[in-house]
Design a binder for these strands. Structure first.
Lengths: 152, 152
DNA sequence: TCAAAAATGATATGTTGTATCTTAACACGC
DNA sequence: GCGTGTTAAGATACAACATATCATTTTTGA
């Protein structure tokens, strides 16, 4: 394993950890937020806001509008409960909330699955390049598109 | 400067180089393609397909539909005449066509300007991470969002 | 010159994202 | 409990980005 433990969560344990992290920031863990988090966490690949809106609407028998989903996903991203995959216009639940990394996403063009890698040395180098160009408030976007092992 | 010269082009010289590269691949340099390339090259920031469609339509007094623009931008990207900035859903002309790099884009969230950096060591590391995960047909997406020097 | 192929156009529609305003839920002092 | 301010969520509309399909034009080359 890497430099430190990640406490990978799943299922209820993951939702509990997410709730704890969100509340630690003074935000509330509402029913809608819980439902959206659970749905997002149920995906094994990046899910679009509309995917989530549809599933949550069905599951609760009550429409959740896409803009509400976007609002809540933005909140999740801001609090590190979820990440946005830019090259897929979609979102992934963070399976170890509370642990901040610049993630690297490997996204398969065939099956859509995304694997998530941390390489702090690499992301630090990216930050360094940006810093040396005078950038502030840096947010690296490091992704790889390709064909995954299973699809080869 | 870096490991090799880039022959940075601009204006007609750039268009000429782009034309040469496209024709080298057996593709034609049509009027529409030339107009779209010129318009794209005239932007100092990533331009959306619709931006380009509007400008080209006005400039030529003849409507160019967005789907045509997408088609041609895809062709440009495939032939390294242009690059897509994933985190901006937009495109940039390659100012040194013929020279293949995994580009790193630094995009300012304030002014929208993008600067383009090459760091082969960095992109090779990203490719290596993906390779070690069993990925093939690798296309790295390395971008940084932040606030540029001028906007600070 | 004619037929096939390539490029572009027209049109429609699908997908992703935001803006604005309204309503509902909640929290807290009185 | 009762009003009041604040936060969360809903409704609606629309803007922005992207693709699918089929028609038309242009180019090419036998």
């Amino acid at each position: 394993m890497g430099q430190h433990d990640h406490h990978e969560h799943h299922g209820d344990s993951l939702a509990d950890a997410a709730q704890a992290n969100l509340e630690k920031s003074g935000e509330k863990w509402t029913d809608t937020r819980a439902a959206i988090f659970d749905t997002l966490a149920g995906f094994s690949r990046p899910a679009s806001a509309y995917d989530i809106a549809d599933l949550v609407s069905t599951a609760r028998g009550k429409r959740v509008a896409p803009n509400s989903v976007y609002r809540i996903l933005d909140l999740f991203v801001a609090n590190n409960l979820a990440m946005r995959v830019e090259s897929a216009n979609a979102y992934l639940a963070n399976s170890h909330p509370g642990c901040e990394h610049d993630c690297i996403f490997l996204v398969c063009d065939t099956c859509g699955e995304a694997t998530h890698v941390d390489d702090d040395s690499l992301s630090q180098q990216v930050r360094k390049v940006a810093t040396s160009e005078g950038f502030k408030s840096i947010r690296p976007v490091i992704e790889v598109r390709g064909i995954c092992q299973k699809c080869n």
